[in-house]
């Protein structure tokens, strides 16, 4: 997986655009944990809208308990997205089922950007590979770190 990610990052660096935007100084990932308060639709609605980037994982960003959750964490890390809310569904069975029902999506991890469901690991990975993720982050006012790496390389 890391090999794939590295290749994808390299591919993205080759054609990523580098203009505008302000780097987001993240306050770090909040391990939101089990404070989600179960899986009621209204609560989940508030939860996914509370932060610009929200992920539901098996495990935590520091210790993902599943390869797919880990991939989501690594993709966000590559883009320098540090300020996101992560909820561990393994801490809360109601949340685990509730978010699947709420998103109408059968698997974990799940990614929300600006309150909108984006998809799971496969979709995030493909968005990373085709450059869409950089654009989506830009819409949120988050400048992907991959753009800065591109600039660094250009200036060398």
């Amino acid at each position: 997986m890391s090999g794939t990610l590295r290749r994808a990052a390299a591919a993205l660096l080759r054609w990523g655009r580098g203009s505008g935007g302000v780097g987001l100084q993240g306050t770090g990932v909040r391990a939101a944990g089990s404070g989600a308060g179960g899986g009621q639709a209204e609560q989940l609605d508030a939860l996914v809208k509370k932060d610009k980037v929200v992920v539901f994982l098996k495990g935590t960003p520091e210790q993902p308990q599943c390869g797919f959750s880990n991939a989501v964490v690594q993709i966000l890390r590559l883009h320098g997205v540090r300020d996101y809310a992560a909820y561990n569904v393994l801490d809360d069975p109601d949340l685990r089922q509730g978010i699947k029902d709420y998103s109408n999506w059968p698997t974990i991890p799940q990614v929300y950007l600006n309150g909108e469901f984006v998809g799971g690991c496969d979709i995030l990975l493909q968005m990373h590979q085709n450059g869409d993720l950089v654009e989506e982050l830009k819409k949120l006012g988050i400048r992907s770190a991959l753009l800065d790496e591109k600039q660094d390389q250009d200036s060398k």
Partner: peptide, 22 residues
Amino acid sequence: LLQRHRLVNECLAEELPHIHAF
């Protein structure tokens, strides 16, 4: 992509709860 994946998920709605990784 999201809609495409939803089509696949719907098609396998019966099976997916029994599948560990997809």
